[in-house]
Nucleic acid binder design. Structure first.
Lengths: 361, 361
DNA sequence: TACAAACAAGAAAACGTTTTCTATACAATA
DNA sequence: TATTGTATAGAAAACGTTTTCTTGTTTGTA
């Protein structure tokens, strides 16, 4: 008997402290849940009087519509997924900041994933995001993963590829003119009079890496310089990789007089190797990096580098995605942003070099 | 005619590629949806045979349970929110990586927000995350925001504060022993014989900044060094701030012989200012940074710095949160991690300094 | 042999929304 | 007056899960 009473009491308590859902609001304001929903979303005919009552009740109860239920019913959530291949790379960090800025303004939340350049991890993340019912995904493809992302596209999720070309036309993408950037960096060295120019390249499969390599080769050709395969080292876009690559270059019987490094982290490694050999920059070796970084100006000498519009890549990608969500039939766009050569002191000046070459010869 | 056929074909395709939900799997494997659910979650009696059939069907259809539906039914979402004050700071980047690593392993998704050190933005993010029904939140508090986060705690969301003390006991937190770190860094300089030691400090209100300042002062006292208020500059934890602060120090009639910089970005700025004045490190000025960074070893000379276990802060915070989600009644923990002095060459060696001081006097 | 305990699996309810369907009332038009 | 249209709002269905309830079927034990 007492037990029964207790149970009843408990139930009543549950009722009062029950999470404030749409029923509570409906009850308090004396309307149906449909009306509450209509008031909350604000896109249907509801009389001013009821609107008022509902709004008041919602405030009183501190009611916030459950997003899971909403997503489930609407079959789309106000969230977008972002898959970044290396969160510790400042380049991607700026990209994320760009994305976040735009999404924040338009009321979207951001699911963040780090793929660590691992296609398996990437796939898991993509699956999760799909299960999460995200409205769209912005990602850096680790590989030409055609079948899988074709699948995704067909499942109705909008994708925007950033930084790397996904290797398919029917997708929005935001990339950088890597070829042109690499061409400019290499030309800069050539114009300063350097002839034996080395390249620390990224992985052979990654599109950014390939394009930068092409730009390098084109520039060498354009300036009538010898393309010595020994001076091209393929590495992994990571600091230790750049370190080892530079060591390899410096151990050659005829090491390069200048070197272009294909991304920011490898540049750090390369610098480390140069310093360990006690070589003077730019007198003994000139260096130009791909991807400008906050620390570039803090180096001694400051680093000449190709600046990528990382923040803009992020904002552009986010905007592209939002546009597509508004109009899914829109034709696909491949946006290519320009790089900018930031000339500082790590390559020396022409005058410098002329003197140097006189001494050398 | 052909058009009609195409349309029909399309419809058929739609039918086949229809979102694979639990019913599809049930149908294909010839069991009830309950059984499918049981197999997927793996925590109920299902015969090996049916288990097999279901698993096979799930793989065939590439079935992934809908997270919204699951969250709705289970009344708990498998997501946690992360609010970072400055995504472009590599320190926080490592923290995020730590968090992501743990969450990935336990199947949680991560809502990412960037507060940009703006309390208003922070509040908006916190509200959004609550509306999003996240299971918990990991954040870097921008200010002692007591009333609001008290509110949040009461609404049942689990909070873990990182990097900075939130100024309240009833909350899990992961911070770093800033005082000890600053003490060690300063002591390092003192032990090398430096006497006029400057400090580029962070904002006066931030807890990390305050603690590092305290550590600095304690070390000065401990080593019987004069604490000259002119040598303490308060700045903003940003690169340009560090740059200006260092300029201010160098313009003094009696500039410091060594300086400790209270965070990584300001260190970059300080280095820039030093290079612009053509001062030799460490001969003319020694520098020790708070927060070790990838570029520290690439500098010439390499930077001596206090390393913070950024990655560990992330993993610890995530683990703390997961534990609390499992057992919400657990008592609150304040974890304080240790820093580590990474001695490189930017402060010189004792021998060096002795010689230098002989020459100077 | 009887009966409880454990195993197995389907039916159905529940989670909190959004939206379609339906039913009013009332004004405007023919 | 009859009819159409529109504003308003409730009832009910639907979204895709998880879990309780229910019903059998084995297995083990007294």
């Amino acid at each position: 008997m007492i037990e029964k009473k207790l149970k009843q009491q408990k139930q009543e308590q549950d009722q009062t402290e029950e999470k404030n859902n749409i029923f509570q609001v409906a009850k308090l304001s004396g309307v149906s849940i449909a009306t509450v929903s209509r008031v909350m979303s604000g896109k249907a005919y509801v009389s001013p009087e009821l609107t008022n009552r509902v709004k008041k009740a919602a405030v009183t109860l501190d009611y916030h519509p459950n997003r899971s239920a909403s997503s489930l019913r609407k079959r789309v959530s106000k969230t977008i997924g972002v898959i970044i291949s290396d969160i510790e790379n400042p380049f991607f960090t700026s990209v994320i900041r760009g994305i976040e800025t735009i999404l924040y303004d338009s009321g979207y939340s951001l699911f963040f994933c780090n793929s660590d350049e691992d296609p398996k991890r990437e796939k898991t993340h993509l699956s999760n995001l799909r299960a999460e019912d995200v409205a769209g995904i912005i990602w850096t493809p680790t590989k030409y993963n055609n079948e899988f992302c074709k699948n995704l596209v067909e499942s109705g999720i909008q994708l925007v590829a950033i930084d790397r070309s996904p290797g398919m036309d029917h997708m929005d993408s935001v990339t950088v003119n890597n070829r042109k950037g690499a061409f400019e960096a290499t030309s800069h060295l050539a114009q300063l009079g350097y002839q034996r120019i080395g390249l620390i390249s990224g992985p052979k499969q990654t599109s950014t890496s390939i394009e930068r390599l092409e730009g390098f080769k084109e520039a060498m050709l354009y300036h009538n310089l010898v393309l010595d395969q020994k001076l091209i080292i393929y590495s992994d876009f990571r600091q230790t990789g750049g370190y080892r690559a530079m060591q390899t270059l410096l151990e050659l019987e005829l090491p390069p007089k200048a070197v272009m490094v294909s991304n920011n982290l490898m540049t750090l490694g390369a610098l480390q190797a140069i310093h360990e050999c006690n070589l003077k920059i730019p007198d003994q070796i000139a260096i130009v990096g791909f991807d400008d970084m906050p620390w570039a100006t803090s180096l001694q000498p400051s680093l000449t580098a190709i600046a990528q519009p990382a923040f803009d890549i992020g904002t552009t990608a986010a905007q592209l995605l939002l546009e597509r969500l508004k109009d899914p039939t829109r034709s696909y766009r491949q946006v290519v942003l320009d790089t900018k050569l930031m000339v500082r002191t790590s390559c020396g000046s022409k005058k410098n070099l002329v003197i140097k070459s006189i001494i050398e010869t």
